[in-house]
Design a protein around this nucleic acid. Structure first.
Length: 437
RNA sequence: GCCCGAGUAGUGUAGUGGCCUAUCAUGUAGCCCUGUCGAGGCUACGACCCGGGUUCAAAUCCCGGCUCGGGCGCCA
């Protein structure tokens, strides 16, 4: 029989309890462990912030309460009202002696995954029961860090004078190319899920907002099947007027450094649970030219001809050589999108990639702001300028030079948490095979 | 999409032709125990992905399917 919440409310999280609290407290959470020693019973109650022991000495607790609790199953939801008591025999030196307990929800047994984390459950099973997986303090740590990361990214960009914007996720055709799109039905029209906010944040550069950023979902219909790709992911995008690529590279490296510092300082408990030793990367990040990167690959036996993008083994080879975050600059124009500004030597562009030793994190560039050059580059890349009218119009009536980048939020979180699989840092990942839950 | 590998109790595993009536841990259920903290002790429960084939004999070998993992490609 499950109890009614009634007028009970949580007065304290586990972490907030201390021996100086004289009045009765009400704690709320899940039964993490049950240890029945016969004459005394211990319940470990877990909430978002930690765990606390509830001690039930048989002689001091009402029979009715004892009977009720002796039938409890792990992971059931409880509220406990009682006295906080200091006792060095209790884990953490504190325990709660209950006067009343409400069983708000009985948990079925057995559980589909091991929540306590003593037996490692495979990711696939964990994702099928993500709500239970989150009850594992290690998994929870990943998502507390994720939350903190987004908070700090926003703080940093706000401090730098950026304005948060939101672009549409449902679009007609005409995106910047380079990837497959998911088609959707939009009343009588065909539409797509947007691959990035690129075109929209550039349009805002003609609005006078000067510095904008967006954190939001992007969709790619590629049939990739790797540990570092998803079909729905989160991008952190900025666009900045009156700037060139070197300006936004500076913002990017300082942002990464700042987020690392903040996580290191304010998520030390979470990092410890993940067994991750986080060191902010030193500023400035190394900048290597595309040509140098090609040389490194060739030296290491990965053959690349000029004008090709780096294959996965190439990225790893360069990462091994550098050992920390680095930029690749001076990319051939032909392998960068139409909106990347060419340098005076036209075959080189003002585009850059930010690399982690194991994967790409971000790419950006100074953008083309001349409408004539834009049209020319579109045609070169087999795109039809007339389909981009909504975008090109923004370049007609005063468009300042501008630059920006897009940063893969999940890639950043992989780097911070040290998780080898991108699915670990997304609550409900969407990949080639998974659409549920 | 290509290549490689794997599917054994709820979870994680051992077992690679007969010693399998299938190992161990965890879990679940029950009993004992007044200070546990990965509690302990005793007892019980629970599994060979599906379909076909080879063989006297298949968890084990072969074929097909399904599912999962890794690498690559594509892509960020």
């Amino acid at each position: 029989m499950e109890d009614d919440l009634g007028n009970w409310r949580r007065t304290h999280y586990s972490e907030e309890l201390n021996a100086d609290i004289e009045e009765d407290v009400t704690i709320a959470g899940w039964v993490h462990e049950i240890r029945d020693l016969g004459g005394v019973m211990f319940l470990i109650i877990r909430d978002r912030k930690g765990k606390v022991q509830v001690t039930l000495p048989e002689k001091k607790v009402k029979d009715k309460l004892m009977d009720k609790i002796s039938e409890i199953s792990k992971e059931s939801v409880l509220m406990v009202q009682g006295q906080v008591k200091e006792d060095e025999r209790a884990p953490g030196g504190l325990e709660v002696l209950p006067k009343e307990i409400k069983v708000l929800s009985d948990a079925e047994t057995p559980l589909p995954i091991d929540v306590a984390g003593e037996v490692n459950t495979e990711l696939d099973n964990r994702l099928n029961s993500r709500f239970l997986d989150l009850r594992n303090p290690e998994t929870l740590s990943v998502f507390k860090i994720r939350d903190k990361t987004f908070t700090e990214v926003r703080k940093f960009l706000e401090k730098e004078g950026f304005i948060e914007m939101t672009s549409p996720k449902m679009v007609a055709t005409a995106t910047e190319g380079g990837t497959e799109l998911f088609p959707i039905s939009y009343f009588e029209k065909e539409a797509f899920l947007n691959q990035s906010p690129q075109l929209f944040k550039q349009i805002m550069m003609a609005s006078g907002l000067d510095k904008v950023y967006e954190i939001g979902p992007i969709f790619r219909a590629e049939e990739h099947d790797t540990r570092r790709h998803l079909n729905e992911t989160t991008s952190i995008d900025i666009e900045m007027a009156f700037s060139d690529h070197t300006d936004v590279m500076g913002i990017l490296e300082r942002l990464i450094n700042y987020v690392y510092e903040k996580i290191e300082q304010e998520c030390s408990e979470e990092l410890k649970k993940l067994d991750k030793d986080l060191k902010p990367p030193e500023l400035p990040f190394e900048r290597i030219k595309y040509d140098e990167a090609v040389d490194i690959c060739n030296k290491k036996g990965i053959e690349i001809t000029w004008g090709e993008d780096f294959p996965t083994p190439g990225e790893k080879a360069i990462g091994e050589e550098i050992g920390d975050y680095y930029f690749i600059v001076d990319w051939p124009s032909e392998i960068k999108p139409f909106y990347a500004q060419p340098k005076e030597e036209k075959e080189i562009s003002k585009a850059f990639d930010l690399m982690h030793p194991e994967f790409e994190l971000s790419s950006g560039a100074q953008r083309v702001h001349s409408i004539e050059l834009l049209k020319k580059r579109m045609i070169n890349q087999d795109l039809e300028p007339s389909e981009f009218k909504f975008y090109l119009d923004a370049f007609k009536y005063g468009m300042p030079p501008h630059s920006g980048w897009g940063l893969g939020a999940e890639r950043l979180l992989m780097a911070i948490t040290g998780k080898p699989n991108i699915r670990e840092v997304v609550l409900f990942p969407r990949d080639r095979k998974r659409l549920i839950p």
